[in-house]
Simulated assay, not measured.
Amino acid sequence: MNPSLKDQLKEWEKKHGFQRPKKRKKPVEKKSAVNKTEKLSKSDLIYLMGMNRPRYSRGRGGAWRSNR
């Protein structure tokens, strides 16, 4: 059975002294930390969590606004 193409390539590289260029590793970017001294008000937190938005539910015929 014939050797696979990958094996043939390895043999050719050994025979001809060919070396593949080494892959460069990408530098790892540091994640920017959120300012730890930042204080959010209660109203800001409620807005970010989306507590005052309308609530929709799935049903027959699409999404319906639920009664609160």
Rank of each mutant, 00 (worst) to 15 (best):
L48W: 03
F18A: 05
Y47T: 11
R55F: 15
L45V: 02
M1L: 12
K36P: 14
D7F: 07
K31C: 10
R55T: 10
V28F: 01
K39E: 05
M1D: 10
I46W: 00
S4L: 02
R65G: 10
K15Y: 03
S4V: 02
L48F: 02
V28H: 03
L5V: 12
R60H: 12
S43Q: 13
V28G: 05
K39Y: 08
R24Q: 13
G17Y: 00
R68H: 14
N52Y: 08
S41N: 01
K36A: 13
W12K: 15
S43Y: 08
P54L: 04
R53E: 04
N67T: 09
M1K: 11
K22C: 07
N52P: 04
K23D: 04
S4T: 07
L5G: 09
G62R: 02
K36T: 13
E29H: 07
A63Y: 09
L48Q: 09
L45T: 06
R60S: 15
R65S: 12
M1F: 10
S41A: 06
K30Y: 02
P3M: 01
G50C: 00
S41H: 04
G62W: 00
K6Q: 12
K36N: 11
M49H: 10
S4P: 01
R53I: 09
V28N: 06
L40M: 03
A33G: 04
I46R: 07
Q8N: 06
W12Y: 13
W64G: 12
L9G: 09
Q8F: 03
P3F: 01
L40N: 01
E11R: 13
P27V: 02
P21E: 00
K23L: 08
K26D: 15
S41K: 07
T37W: 09
R20M: 01
N52R: 10
S43T: 13
R55Y: 15
L45M: 07
P3H: 04
N52V: 11
S4C: 04
Q19F: 06
R53D: 02
K10T: 01
